[in-house]
C-alpha cells in the first residue's frame, strides 16, 4: 500500500511536517484519499501564531469537511496560495505541490515517524 516519505514526520490527524526552516506543513495521502476531491481550504493567515495539536483551519471536499491541526507551534510565514486557488493539487500531490503552509517553529507537538504513521493508519 502507501509509502510515506521517510524524511517527513506525521500526526495522528494526518498532517505532515518536514525538517526545513521554516517547516512545511501539509496533509497526507491518507487524508486526501479519505476526503475525496478537496474543493476548499481555509488556512491560517500569514503572521498567525499556531499551537501544536490545535485546530488552525479546514479542509473541505465535495463529500465532507475535516479540521486541520497544526503539527507544530510557531508563526505562520507563508501559505500555499496556489493550493487555495486550486485545491485539487492536495489530492494530486499531497506531499509536494499540495503543501499547505510554512511555520517558523518554536516547538513541536506529538510527531510520528513514517513507520509509526504507517502502523497507525494500517498501511
Amino acid at each position: 500500500m502507501a509509502e510515506f516519505p521517510a524524511a517527513l514526520r506525521y500526526t495522528v490527524e494526518h498532517e505532515w511536517v518536514d525538517t526545513s526552516s521554516p517547516a512545511v506543513v501539509g496533509v497526507t495521502s491518507v487524508a486526501a484519499e479519505a476526503l475525496g476531491d478537496v474543493v476548499y481550504l481555509e488556512l491560517p493567515a500569514v503572521g498567525a501564531s499556531v499551537e501544536a495539536g490545535t485546530v488552525i483551519g479546514e479542509i473541505e471536499s465535495t463529500k465532507s469537511v475535516s479540521e486541520l491541526y497544526s503539527p507544530v507551534s510557531g508563526t505562520v510565514v507563508e501559505v500555499n496560495q496556489a493550493a487555495i486557488d486550486d485545491p485539487a493539487v492536495v489530492n494530486a500531490d499531497p506531499f509536494g505541490a499540495g503543501w499547505l503552509f510554512k511555520v517558523e517553529v518554536s516547538s513541536e507537538g506529538q510527531l510520528l515517524t513514517a513507520e509509526e504513521y504507517g502502523q497507525h493508519t494500517g498501511h
Binding site: 484519499e33 475525496g36 476531491d37 474543493v39 471536499s61 465535495t62 463529500k63 485539487a88 489530492n91
Partner: peptide
Amino acid sequence: ASLTGFGGWLMPLRYTSDLAEH
C-alpha cells in the same frame, strides 16, 4: 472503489474521484 455502508449495504462511494464521476 472506496466502499461505504449505506442503507444496510456495502456500496461504492467512489472509484477514482467524486468530481470526475460527477
